[in-house]
Amino acid sequence: MFYLSVISVEIGNVYIASSSKGLVKVSLDTGEFHNWLKSCGEEYMWNDSKNEPAISQLTDYFKGRLREFDLKLDLDATDFQMSVYKALMEVPYGHVVSYKDIALKVNKPGAFRAVGGAVHRNPLPVIVPCHRVICSDGTIGGFAYDIEIKRKLLRIEGVIL
């Protein structure tokens, strides 16, 4: 069973899904969220009370009042993806790193493209801060959502590229 919520913030709607174990999905796009929901084959219900910690912390983040999340997560990922997500969660608020930096951190120095793939498939953007990853040359790089959303997330944290 998934518990769903939606909040409206500066960048638009943020969709949230959790299980009894923790946060499963955060989406910054309506269509992507609905496609994910169709593909997961689970039962679901809209229930803000089950998602209150995520709603509260995400709201505070977007208002600039929260720098670090403290939420139970229920990530379904490969070992490699989990190592990348763990490394991403160690990138401090207001800082950026390169795909190469993350590859080095997970002891796969030549795997920066694989890191990019894992970052792109991150099911918990903002919580697992994939927006903090940029190209080695200092350019903004890609993002699973609109690149302008990545810029806005970085601006919230005081990063201007």
Rank of each mutant, 00 (worst) to 15 (best):
I11P: 11
G12M: 04
N13P: 00
N13H: 04
N13S: 10
V14H: 08
Y15P: 14
A17V: 03
S20R: 07
K21T: 03
G22K: 09
G22S: 07
K25V: 10
V26Q: 03
V26Y: 01
S27T: 00
S27K: 00
D29N: 15
D29G: 05
E32D: 13
F33K: 08
N35V: 10
N35K: 14
N35F: 11
K38L: 12
S39R: 08
S39H: 12
S39L: 08
E42K: 08
E43I: 02
Y44E: 03
Y44I: 00
Y44H: 07
M45V: 10
N47A: 13
D48Y: 05
S49K: 11
S49T: 12
K50A: 06
K50N: 01
N51E: 02
E52L: 11
S56W: 04
S56D: 09
Q57E: 08
Q57S: 04
Q57M: 06
L58T: 03
T59Q: 02
T59I: 03
D60F: 01
F62M: 01
F62A: 04
K63R: 13
R65E: 14
R67T: 08
E68W: 06
E68A: 14
L73E: 12
L73F: 12
D74A: 15
L75P: 05
D79W: 09
Q81F: 06
M82Y: 13
S83P: 10
V84A: 02
A87N: 05
L88K: 01
L88M: 05
M89V: 06
V91G: 05
V91C: 05
Y93F: 14
Y93W: 11
G94Q: 01
G94A: 03
H95N: 12
V96C: 07
S98E: 00
Y99L: 13
K100F: 00
I102M: 09
A103T: 04
A103R: 01
K105L: 04
N107V: 07
K108A: 15
A111T: 04
F112S: 13
V119K: 03
H120P: 00
R121K: 13
L124P: 11
L124S: 12
P125C: 14
P125G: 13
I127D: 15
V128G: 00
R132A: 08
G138F: 07
